[in-house]
Design a protein around this nucleic acid. Structure first.
Lengths: 163, 163
DNA sequence: TGGCTGAGTCTGTCAAGCGGACTTATCATG
DNA sequence: CATGATAAGTCCGCTTGACAGACTCAGCCA
């Protein structure tokens, strides 16, 4: 294929895309509702009916998404019983789920910059406890630099496959 | 509503969710294909047919997604003409699109940890140029700490609305 | 006993995704 | 000039998934 390009032939074209990490992550997170569900759980809303009502998700869809997130190991059921009530379920983040924090923070950071509200940020990631300061994510390389976006590039790693 | 909870009533329940930054970001990025499209453009694959074939997107969907991304200002058309060929279009990241780098890097980082491939990472963010080192994202607060996920919490910001 | 509530399940409708065929514009070749 | 190739779409019909609204079920409570 003579896919010549203005500057140079994109190296990426020679690598397979099937096993790309982003694809595999998006298989879990890449739909309209999953992030909404996670957001609710992240902010501490853990019960089916509360999540459904706040996020406006159809019941059936919520049932299905929670099941998928449990199966993928991002959340787990946590049965509990209040005095004088029957047992119910909460959904809580597992370690894997918790580790999505940087992703959510990065998204919020981007959203606050490019889709700002006049009133200011509706939600802020903060360091718990005494510190209480605002949390952001930054990119940095192993040499200690903090490259701007333009200075970063995706390269094939050891698991890349030729096409 | 007596939404008592094991530990305490989640404060988040008292805040509206409508204008949440994550929702607004997900309106742009939150579907099965958009991230795949962005990934291709990020790695340097910029032409309709190349994107379509590599990501396996139905043509119609790709047309629609590219238009949406352009309208949202994440990418722009870049007409060009190779000698002896007619004019074609490439799709390139705008500044806003570029600034999604931390989001993508965070996702890759998570995926490589929780959905690892035996062969290793298929794609690696790296500092361009001489440095060439691997790039990661980290969370840190304004006081300079690097809180673990468990030490971060989402709090309502100035733009939060009561329900 | 009947009612309330949380957490679903069932059902029919409608929009979206999908694969495959068709279209259009431009260049290259014979 | 006619023919063919190619990039970037459109068009079409089928199927899948989202959706709203009604129904179910279990346990507590009056």
């Amino acid at each position: 294929m003579s896919t010549a390009v203005s500057e140079q032939m994109p190296e990426a074209m020679t690598w397979s895309t099937e096993n790309c990490t982003i694809s595999r992550v998006m298989e879990i997170l890449g739909d309209k509702w999953t992030f909404h569900v996670l957001r609710e759980i992240f902010v501490g809303v853990r019960r089916f009916e509360d999540i459904r009502a706040r996020a406006g998700i159809p019941r059936q869809v919520l049932t299905e998404r929670l099941a998928a997130l449990i199966e993928r190991g991002l959340i787990r059921r946590h049965p509990y019983r209040l005095p004088g009530q029957r047992e119910r379920s909460e959904y809580r983040l597992t370690e894997a789920g918790m580790d999505l924090y940087p992703v959510l923070v990065a998204m919020i950071q981007w959203g606050d910059e490019y889709l700002p509200l006049a009133a200011g940020a509706p939600i802020e990631p903060r360091h718990r406890g005494d510190c209480g300061e605002r949390v952001t994510v930054t990119m940095h390389c192993e040499a200690g630099h903090e490259p701007a976006p333009r200075e970063v590039a995706f390269r094939p790693g050891p698991g890349a496959r030729r096409r």
